[in-house]
Each structure stands twice: as C-alpha cells, then as structure tokens.
Amino acid sequence: MMAFYFGQLVEIFPFFLKGLWMTSKIAFISLVSCTLIGLVLGIFRSSNSIILRHLVGVYVAFVRGTPFVVQIFIIFFIFPEWGIQLEAFSAALLAMAIMGSAFICEIVAGGIAAIPKGQWEAAASSGLTNLQQLRLIVIPQAMKIILPPLVGQYVLLIKDTSVVSVIGVMDLTRVGWVTVVRIPEGLMVFTLVGALYFMISYPLILLSNYLERRMAV
C-alpha cells in the first residue's frame, strides 16, 4: 500500500514543485516589500515627531497583537465588503507586507536606537541635514546590528507564508493539503512538504547563526 502511494506521489511531484515555486514567489516578493516598508517605518518610529512615532507604534501593536491567520481573514474578507476586489494572491502579498513590515520596523528601530546619540550630534554639528545624518552616519552603522535579527526574521516570514494557504493560494502547504485528500498518506505527504520548506529556510537559519556569531565577537 505504502509503495503504491509512494509511486503516486512521485507521479504528482511536479505539482509540489509548482507549490514550491508559488511559495518562493510569495516569500521573495514579501521579503523585499517588508524590508523596504519596514525600513521606512523603522525610521519613522525613531523620528522626533511624537505623532509619527505613536502612529507607527499603534500599527506595530495591532500587527504583533493579533495572529497572522486572523489578519489574513480580515484582509481577504473585508476588502470585498468595501468594494475592493482582491484575489487571493494579492491579499496574501498585502497581508505579508503588513505583518512583516511591522516586525522589521521594530528591528530597524532597535538598530537605530543602538547608535550612540553622539554620532547624531557630531554629524549635526558639521551641518549635515537630518536625512544626511541618517543616511550617511546612522543607517550604515545600524545595518551591522540589524542584519542578524533581520535574517532571523526572514526565516520566520518564509515560514509564515504557509498561512496564506488558508485563503486558497496554491502554495506548498496548500498543495500538501489538496494532495492528502487524494493520497491518504499524511506522513509521507507532509514530510515531503516539510522537506521542501526545510530546503529554503535551513540555509537562511545557518546564515543567521553565522551572522549572530560574527556579531558576538
């Protein structure tokens, strides 16, 4: 029986590769957008403007305070109620961008906060504008602090893409879920799914470990 199902699984393997492709696509697009938005939000979060700081703070609290799956449901179901038609794929990307950027925002803000005040003051004293102080002095130094946790966050975000399967996006997890209905070998199917996720995230975990070790010395 096992062997029979194994044969079937080999037969539909291309289906899994399609899922892997979808997962990679979502992961890549959302990592890029999360990083960009997160960087901007992180800068806002460290700005002098109290309003801006708190606005971003509320956003971050809302995202961190609720499960990602609930956020996806809200985005997927509520936008149509407002008359905005959103297909599953776009809803998934939007949800990932909102969620991921909030976490990256905190990492960026933490990195910026770790730069001594004297660096800002020295740059200000020689006439650099606020933006120049940030771009030339603070961000390059903060980058070193930000990088290890950022890569760690990337791993979490890649794994979180599995949740978008709940709104019907045909990613790796969804493929497993659809397959298991036809081939009732749950262990085999989800071992395969897990192995494919492992292939993407484990190298990043190793990279993040390496960066963290290098930071520590």
Binding site: P116, Q119, E121, A122, A124, S125, S126, P140
Partner: peptide, 27 residues
C-alpha cells in the same frame, strides 16, 4: 549656521565605519 561652527566633543564621536580621511571629508 553649523557649517561655520566647529564642535569637538569630549568623547570624540568619530564615525567608526569610515576611515580617518572619510571622517574629515564627509561634511
């Protein structure tokens, strides 16, 4: 205004990610 006023801090506050020359050239 600040371009006309040099400021030297007790703790130097040199930019650690730049060379000495880059520190001086920056402004």
């Amino acid at each position: 205004l600040r371009a006309d006023i040099g400021f030297v801090f007790q703790q130097f506050h040199l930019y650690p990610h730049m060379t000495v020359l880059e520190n001086v050239m920056l402004a």
